[in-house]
Design a protein around this nucleic acid. Structure first.
Length: 748
DNA sequence: GTAGGGTTAG
């Protein structure tokens, strides 16, 4: 049998028929079984020969054949006609039309409506339109048929056009017309048109039709008019599960998941039983708020209702678990789906990317390309985000190259992601190239570039770009200011940062935690610790982790123990299981040689079951990332690395480098300390980079933790000794080491 | 012949 199958159609049919996870084979056997039924059954029809042609060619459904009134009730629903060889559609339709003409039935509105419906179902929308145009005086059924055709193929502009023409022709609309037209308004986000249609609905007296009203709720919700959707919803006495689902998903789509969930519980109280689409909508709301526990309870509900094999629920569950960080659980749902589905893959890739499983995300993306699966803008954006996290410039180049050859090269969202990616992979130059070639830059594009400069401590350029942005008529937003403040902070532009912070109110932007944290950082950097403390005390919002963290960092740099202890106390109560805070406090104690206190912090961590995060560094050599841990001897070239390390050590000593022992977490004796220091992962990566690349090559290193004082200082020396630029991405920012100086100005 | 859902950059 010729099989040109519409994926979506086959899924719908399979849903009606059998276990969804193995639909393809069931579908085949079912079609095979019922085919032989036709010839014998068909003989008993009294209907004209052309309708037999219809049935034989365009229907594989046995369901209607046993019906005594078959010639008036048979069904040409889209999913029953999707098995026909595409190339013969046109011929068959032509034959049928010819039969109609020959039988003098060309004016039979009923048959022509059927012909139009079948043509639309087969995707022959232009043919349908031709048949429609040739019909002398179309009635409302015929108009609805052609409008339905355009609607089912998402040709919304044509829907609206036909709707206007229908009114001009003086045909009165019925309650079937409006849902198609409203769907078109939603699809086009044509709110004005939606308003007008709403007026028509009133005038035609369809304000009680539940289909029309449900469509109105959905239309307003899709056009971001959730308040209006709510007004229609509140005015409805007769609410079906579709009504409830429309308003629930409307709130979720408009960024109000909490309200969506509140209405869901209201729905449950009204004893309306959710169906699978309602559950999908509710899952989305819990996914948005990343509420794993509630998400799990919906999962329980899905199982209770026996819907756990519903493919679209599997997708929603995958998305929910993935976004809530349960990527392994998500992956098991992902693996259950045998047929490729773009949204499922997107959910898995973005879930991986969002939760730090960057390699898995990139891997899946490559798998998609390898398998020739179609991707969309969401797929590439998630993949770009993952590349940004990996940090490899080579991978970033590959991704950029892929985008340049794709249909997304002018997509402003994709380009924003690319700018961010290049900035995080260490190349502002490439980021700038993308930025410069992006037309119609919105505030997000500008902010991404400003944040990029900020990340690399290029404060002046960030501020210049900010002025250029304003000049081009784009208004800054809160993210722009995060970028600017970060840029000032990372490059020591203390007064400029302070001034910019106060400019925020000119744009009615309420500072958030990140902005306050940047200011505390700025003050801290300038050594104004008591001002920083006063600033925190006068904040209009409750200071959070980022703010106290900034203060603790400053206290560590300036060795201010009492204030540091206070900041640490706040951090421990707000964020008790974050190892970083304990390490910072311990490093503060170590810097003033308060070894007893260092030990106390260690005990505190032990009590909480925490251990210091293992440091590692990655270095990219010839497009490959190599990982090194502290004291790592496992590398195949360890012998050479170790020789290089010793050589470096010697040269460092000769150049007058003195190790800073206080960056070691434990109280060790001097020799051991020094040995561990030069075995820090960063140094291993540098040594490997030096022996693996030609002289003068920039070394690019990615660390999982913040730079330690000792490595930072040693790396400055090394950059001068070996005449190399060394670019290090630590957990917070970039350090560009060159000629013995670091771009961070020794404050990070 | 009609209505509702899932993936989304800084």
């Amino acid at each position: 049998m010729a099989m040109i199958m519409n994926k979506c159609t086959s899924v719908k049919l399979a849903r009606k028929l059998s276990h969804p996870c193995c639909f393809s084979s069931d579908l085949f056997s079912l079609t095979a079984n019922i085919r032989p039924l036709y010839p014998s059954t068909a003989k008993s029809f009294e209907f004209p020969a052309l309708l037999l042609t219809f049935l034989n060619h365009y229907s594989v459904s046995p369901f209607h054949l046993n019906n005594a009134n078959v010639h008036f009730t048979f069904d040409f629903n889209s999913f029953y006609v999707s098995f026909i060889d595409n190339s013969t559609h046109k011929t068959h339709l032509n034959q049928i039309h010819a039969h109609l003409l020959a039988s003098g039935l060309q004016d039979c509105g009923f048959l022509i409506t059927k012909l139009i419906n079948v043509s639309c179902n087969l995707g022959e929308i232009r043919y349908a339109r031709k048949v429609f145009d040739e019909f002398p005086d179309p009635d409302v059924f015929l108009w609805n048929a052609i409008i339905r055709g355009y609607s089912m193929h998402n040709m919304f502009g044509d829907v609206i056009e036909m709707y206007s023409m229908m009114q001009m022709a003086g045909v009165s609309l019925d309650c079937f017309t409006f849902p198609y037209v409203l769907k078109a308004c939603s699809g086009l986000l044509a709110l004005e048109m939606g308003w007008r249609v709403h007026g028509q609905i009133f005038r035609h007296g369809f304000e009680l039709d539940v289909f029309v009203q449900n469509s109105l709720v959905a239309m307003y919700a899709k056009c971001s008019q959730i308040r209006h959707a709510r007004m229609v919803f509140d005015g409805l006495y007769d609410r079906t599960i579709v009504t409830w689902t429309s308003i629930i998903s409307g709130y979720a789509q408009n960024g109000e998941p909490i309200e969506a969930l509140r209405i869901f519980s209201q729905m449950r109280q009204s004893n309306v039983k959710p169906d699978w689409i309602a559950l999908v909508s509710v899952l989305r709301a819990f996914t948005d708020v990343e509420d794993l526990e509630q998400g799990k309870s919906v999962h329980g509900c899905v199982i209770k209702m026996g819907l756990e094999y519903e493919p679209d629920l599997l997708i929603s569950l995958t998305a929910m678990y993935a976004k809530c960080g349960q990527v392994t659980v998500a992956r098991s749902f992902f693996n259950q789906m045998k047929l490729p589905n773009l949204i499922l893959w997107n959910a898995m890739i973005s879930g991986y990317a969002k939760n730090g499983y960057a390699e898995e995300a990139v891997g899946l993306f490559c798998e998609m390309i390898g398998k020739n699966l179609s991707v969309d803008s969401i797929t590439v954006r998630s993949a770009i985000l993952a590349c940004a996290q990996v940090g490899s410039l080579e991978l970033a180049r590959w991704m950029d190259d892929y985008i340049m050859r794709s249909e997304y090269r002018d997509d402003v969202f994709v380009n924003t992601a690319l700018i961010d990616m290049y900035a995080k992979c260490g190349s502002l130059d490439f980021a700038r190239i993308i930025f410069d070639r992006t037309l119609q830059k919105d505030v997000v594009v500008w902010s991404a570039m400003i944040v990029g400069y900020g990340l690399h401590g290029r404060g002046r350029e960030a501020i210049d770009l900010y002025h250029a942005m304003k000049q081009s008529g784009v208004c800054p937003n809160d993210v722009t200011f995060v970028g600017l403040l970060m840029a000032c902070n990372h490059s020591g532009l203390i007064e400029e940062g302070w001034e910019l912070f106060h400019r925020m109110k000119d744009y009615d932007i309420e500072p958030r935690h990140q902005h306050y944290a940047c200011v505390v950082d700025l003050l801290g950097r300038a050594g104004c610790l008591s001002q920083a403390y006063d600033f925190i005390m006068n904040m209009p919002i409750e200071p959070g982790v980022s703010v106290w963290g900034a203060l603790l960092s400053a206290c560590k740099i300036y060795r201010h123990v009492t204030l540091g202890e206070y900041a640490a106390e706040q951090l421990f109560s707000l964020d008790p299981y974050n190892t970083g805070h304990y390490v910072q406090l311990s490093n503060l104690y170590a810097s003033v040689r308060l070894w007893d206190c260092v030990a106390k912090v260690r005990v505190l961590m032990k009590e909480k079951g925490l251990s210091k995060d293992l440091g590692y560094s990655l270095i990219e050599v010839n497009g490959k990332l190599q990982a090194f841990r502290v004291g790592d001897k496992s590398h195949p070239r360890y012998k050479e690395i170790s020789v290089e390390l010793e050589r470096l050590e010697k040269r460092l000593m000769e150049a007058g480098f003195v190790p800073h022992t206080d960056s070691v977490f434990h109280d060790l004796n001097y020799e051991e300390t020094e040995e561990i220091l030069c075995n820090h992962s960063e140094r291993l990566a540098i040594a490997y980079g030096l022996i693996s690349t030609p002289p003068g090559t920039t070394l690019r290193i990615i660390k999982n933790l913040r730079a330690c004082v000792n490595c930072h200082s040693a790396t400055k020396f090394i950059s001068k000794l070996v005449s190399r630029e060394i670019v290090v991405r630590d957990a917070n920012r970039f350090h560009h080491f060159k000629d013995g100086v670091c771009s961070c100005g020794d404050y990070w």
